[in-house]
Design a protein around this nucleic acid. Structure first.
Length: 446
DNA sequence: ATCGGCTCGCGCAA
DNA sequence: TGCGCGAAGCCGAT
């Protein structure tokens, strides 16, 4: 049974007699998906078929082929798994605000269910769809362990203020999932014509997409790397991190399932705690920021002490100034920074510690902090497999804009924003080895 | 190797 | 109104 606090009704329409549609968006998986479970529950109580629908918006077509393939491969697996459960799946291409109401009408849908995202584009789509539908539109937070609006009703100042709220609710929300039984009633739908959606899909051997690959990735991490997580997570050469973020971003793995499995692992407590802090507190804090601050993707959204401080230093002379193109092509004077950019471009991922360093140097070497923000967001959105995600926006705001952080002593360009430099990296890990690995032609084995 | 200071404001205790 | 303390650090002193 889905906790009713996970679910919100987005319009005031009455249920009618017809199939239940789950409009899958952020949570692209069958297992451990509260939105799918809620839709199933509705379908069962109304004795109606369930249809899962994915809308492929044209705006996503600008994403690099790697991202597109990663997502579509994952969706092919979703289709196959749903098929084995006797649940039809279909993909519509076009703007969701046009396609979804049209589809709901065509299928004579009785209820529509969707998953939750705090991003503006998603909120805009849902608002429009909720207004057009003649039937209820439910939104289910299937991404967070504690539903974003239950964890806190306002923008949190820092992890310190958010942590006790989330942790106190874990006893209620960090619960086990149950399996889905195959459906007996089904709606007839044509299978997805994958050839029409993309010419050829080839898997990226460095990073296999999909729910099964995500589950394997988690399993490997828990068995072989979690035990050194606390000590080695800030060493990009150690390969101690989970590498789950692309799967989490596309919803190919559930954060809640990940947390449950982590808690059960026999790694030392210090490592489990360190990983759960990142997985739960910091990840869900980024949804909180995007949910309650409309300017999450720009300088405007930053805390006022940071804006004041950065602005008062925006006229400071910069030792180096690069254009967005120079950043993009890894053409700065510093091999370490260029290596991080190469890692991002070649693999679609950037190590957590290096992502902070990478963003802070963009601040240091841009004409203005506003421009730095734009450059960092657009590079991350374009190249990171977990781009266009609350984590990315919040991470850039933390690095460049002191979000959720405290002020530190004042220095040129940075103002009171926490400073990082290459000697800090050198103290923590072997810089030369990191550079060599990033400059290699075929990335990437730790 | 380790430690304190840097600096602001939230949230709670009083 | 006062006080403790904080998402990942740096720097200089010991």
């Amino acid at each position: 049974m889905t906790d009713p606090r996970r679910t919100r009704l987005l319009n005031n329409c009455q249920e009618s007699n017809g199939p239940v549609i789950y409009w899958m968006s952020r949570d692209q998986r069958v297992r451990c998906n509260w939105a799918l479970l809620f839709a199933l529950q509705k379908a069962e109580s109304l004795q109606q078929p369930l249809i899962v629908l994915f809308t492929l918006a044209p705006s996503f077509l600008q994403a690099p082929l790697r991202h597109y393939e990663f997502m579509l491969k994952g969706l092919q697996e979703v289709e196959a798994t749903l098929c084995s459960l006797n649940i039809p799946f279909c993909i519509l291409q076009g703007e969701p605000e046009n396609e979804l109401p049209r589809f709901a009408q065509k299928m004579k849908a009785g209820v529509v269910v969707t998953d939750y995202s705090p991003l503006k584009i998603s909120r805009r789509w849902k608002k429009s769809v909720a207004g057009q539908l003649q039937v209820p539109l439910y939104e289910v937070d299937a991404h967070n362990i504690v539903p974003c609006w239950i964890a806190s009703g306002k923008q949190e100042y820092s992890a310190r203020t958010f942590r006790p709220k989330v942790n106190a609710l874990l006893a209620e929300f960090l619960t086990e999932f149950h399996d889905i039984k195959p459906r007996s009633v089904s709606a007839e739908l044509k299978p997805v014509d994958w050839n029409r959606i993309v010419q050829s899909l080839k898997a990226d051997p460095a990073l296999m997409p999909g729910e099964k690959a995500a589950a394997n990735c988690l399993e490997t991490f828990l068995v072989s790397r979690l035990a050194s997580y606390a000590e080695q997570r800030n060493d990009p050469n150690a390969g101690a991190v989970s590498t789950l973020s692309p799967y989490l971003h596309f919803g190919q793995i559930s954060a809640q399932f990940t947390a449950l499995q982590t808690a059960k692992s026999n790694a030392p407590e210090i490592d489990r705690k360190a990983f759960l802090e990142e997985l739960i507190v910091r990840r869900e804090l980024s949804d909180n920021y995007c949910c309650y601050n409309d300017h999450y993707d720009s300088f405007e959204g930053l805390p006022s002490w940071a804006k004041v401080s950065l602005s008062s230093h925006s006229g400071d002379p910069r030792e180096y100034i690069y254009t967005p193109e120079e950043f993009e092509t890894a053409a700065t004077h510093e091999r370490l920074w260029n290596a991080a950019q190469l890692e991002l471009v070649k693999t679609g991922k950037i190590h957590g510690y290096m992502r902070m360093y990478w963003a802070k140097k963009i601040l240091e070497w841009s004409e203005t902090p506003e421009q730095a923000f734009i450059t960092a967001i657009s590079l991350n959105d374009r190249y990171a497999l977990d781009g266009r995600d609350p984590n990315g926006y919040t991470g850039v705001a933390w690095s460049i804009g002191g979000l959720h952080d405290r002020p530190w002593f004042e220095r040129p360009v940075y103002g009171k924003i926490r400073y990082m430099n290459a000697s800090g990296c050198a103290r923590k890990f072997d810089i030369a080895r990191y550079i060599a690995r990033c400059e290699e032609n075929d990335l990437f084995s730790p």
